[in-house]
Design a binder for these strands. Structure first.
Length: 575
DNA sequence: GCCGTTTTCGGCCCGACTGTTTTCAGTCG
């Protein structure tokens, strides 16, 4: 059983407790427990196997630990089943409609017997909601709008889409004369793999004028709410943007508040509270006196903490690390010296070897590995041994023509169902860079999949495992394998793990990066570019690495061409 | 239901906006 499943069950208990209007702190306890489980780097299943004490985990006490054991064994727990008997399960779904919380959901259910989305829609249209106490016409409208939003937006947006909106919004805000300063915070700043909305902080003298000018942004679809402090809009593409005004003296605390994560904020507020202070978006205050707020650094320092990079703010040990000055120095995009995963026209890329190289040189790189597909990927015009040898020859000719750049003759070879590589190992051994990836049979059971990957890792000719989890965000689940065994084998065989920077992959995911780093594996960040512009995916991969606590030294394509070459040739025979 | 730098009971993060009210509850982030 996966951690997500356990966390979902706990959240379900919380949902139903909310509907039952149970003690709010009890509800919060279940939410916190669910979040803790979700954020674990290890599987609860394994922890239980090892007879570990779950109450040692944050926010898990005796009661929840018992329930987790129950959920693991039976798929549910008695408390949850009991709640389901008392509260219609479907109401929990209705609660997901924006504007409809637990109270209103229960109210419409009790008064009108509504249990389904369709029933709710009908009631709104018929105007029977407005007669309930505390509700009116506007409530009906908002619920209908909420149902529509829920259906269309279906949650989160890719980091790439969010970046496009953020960039064009930024260009607009730069032109607004009444805005003195603005910045994007939120999960976008934390570089999460997907983004729910954009949080934009604005400093302006004349707020109402700034609001007017901001709302003139061409992509604004509708204004959701509008106050003196905050303006919320939905863009035409469905992405929600919160604009929040602040004064210069509170810039740092506002950035912290809106950057989150929520769990990180709560951890910091509790820390402030212990000192008898209060922390909110307006500053760190003691009684009526403001202790800090102008910059993020000032707030962290006043709390006896080092400044924490946004990507680490998940309440996953970063506060403790900041306290003991043990924070990592996360890798930066400027540390990257080359890209080791790109395709050319030889397989399914759109550009020639030369064009890809030019694009890499324009970006200031020292090297680039051309890694076209192998023959198993027929849809991508994968190369067989003969074509690959000719292709490698061509790459080396081009490489000869550029003394100040290293073009590596490489391949992205398929890991077949058995674990055998798709190309002759003698041919692979003659290449500069071999990335091995899975592109088929994603549904093998965990044992078979683990052995499959281990066979490739131990082949002796592979430098790197490409997009190790094979997931596509929101489309395809990660493959099932024993990650710890694979990570250990990679370390022992000198095989790198790739962080694939394609925004729909971002694979390895951040939590696995951190886990693999602790095992001692080396990483490579590759864009998997299929055309020149795709080389610009690199920052997305760097974002994942930063969220995974990786430093420059952990990632081998931060090495200069000279050092990398030494490593690759020196590593021959070792893997 | 969890938890402890005010520790085994009594707290639990904090503020803005809307729509309904006429002082506030519900929702959201």
């Amino acid at each position: 059983m996966e951690n997500t499943q356990i966390a979902n069950a706990l959240d379900e208990v919380a949902d139903l407790l909310e509907l039952s209007q149970a003690n709010e702190f009890r509800i919060r306890a279940y939410r916190r427990a669910a979040r803790s489980i979700r954020g674990l780097s290890r599987r609860v299943e394994d922890l239980l196997e090892e007879k570990k004490d779950l109450t040692k985990l944050a926010n898990i006490g005796k009661g929840t630990a018992d329930k987790i054991r129950e959920i693991r064994e039976t798929g549910t727990c008695r408390r949850l089943e009991e709640l389901k008997r008392q509260v219609p399960e479907q109401l929990a779904e209705l609660m997901k409609v924006p504007q409809l919380g637990p109270r209103k959901a229960m109210q419409v259910h009790k008064a009108l017997g509504i249990e389904t989305m369709d029933g709710l829609k009908k009631a709104c249209r018929q105007g029977s909601i407005r007669d309930l106490p505390g509700m009116g016409r506007k409530t009906e409208e908002n619920i209908l709008k909420g149902i529509k939003t829920l259906a269309s937006a279906s949650g989160r947006h890719s980091i790439k889409a969010a970046k496009e909106y953020a960039d064009s919004l930024g260009r607009h805000l730069d032109r607004v004369s009444s805005i003195k300063q603005w910045a994007v915070a939120g999960s976008f700043r934390r570089r999460k793999e997907t983004v729910g909305d954009l949080d934009v902080l604005i400093q302006a003298k004349d707020r109402s004028r700034a609001t007017e000018e901001t709302l003139a942004f061409e992509s604004v679809g509708e204004v959701v709410s509008r106050g003196k402090e905050r303006v919320t809009v939905r863009l035409k593409g469905g992405l929600q943007v919160d604009f929040r005004y602040f004064e210069p003296g509170a810039f740092g605390s506002a950035m912290m508040y809106f950057t989150g994560s929520k769990a990180h904020n709560i951890a910091l507020r509790k820390r402030a509270q212990h000192k008898g202070w209060k922390l909110n978006e307006y500053g760190l205050v003691k009684g009526k006196r403001t202790l800090a707020g102008k910059t993020e650094e000032s707030v962290y320092h006043r709390l006896n903490l080092a400044w924490i990079p946004p990507e680490l703010r998940e309440d996953q040990g970063e506060v403790e690390a900041a306290e003991h000055e043990e924070l990592p120095v996360p890798i930066e995009f400027d540390d990257i010296r080359g890209d080791l995963h790109v395709h050319s026209k030889a397989s399914d890329g759109t550009n020639t070897i030369e064009e890809m190289m030019d694009a890499a040189r324009q970006r200031g790189y020292q090297y680039l590995a051309i890694t076209d597909h192998s023959k198993a990927v027929t849809v991508a015009n994968g190369l067989d041994e003969k074509r690959l040898m000719n292709h490698a020859e061509r790459i080396r000719e081009v490489n000869e023509s550029v003394p100040d750049f290293w073009l590596l003759a490489g391949v992205e070879v398929d890991i077949l169902k058995s674990g055998k590589l798709d190309l002759d190992e003698d041919v692979l051994a003659g290449l500069d860079w071999v990335c091995a990836s899975i592109h088929s049979y994603f549904n093998l059971d965990e044992k078979k999949m683990t052995n499959r990957i281990l066979t490739a890792v131990r082949s002796g000719v592979v430098h790197c495992i490409g997009h190790p989890c094979g997931r596509m965000i929101g489309q395809r689940d990660p493959i099932a394998f024993d990650v710890d065994r694979v990570f250990e084998a990679c370390r022992d065989n000198g095989v790198c793990l790739e962080i694939n920077a394609q925004p729909e992959r971002l694979d390895l995911p951040d939590t696995y990066c951190r886990r693999a780093r602790n095992v001692g594996v080396a990483f490579v960040i590759g864009t998997d570019a299929h055309k020149q512009q795709n080389l610009d995916f690199m920052p997305f991969g760097v974002g994942v690495a930063r969220r995974g606590w990786l430093e420059k030294k952990d990632v081998i394509n931060t090495r200069t061409a000279r050092v990398l070459e030494k490593r690759l040739t020196g590593a021959q025979g070792h893997g």
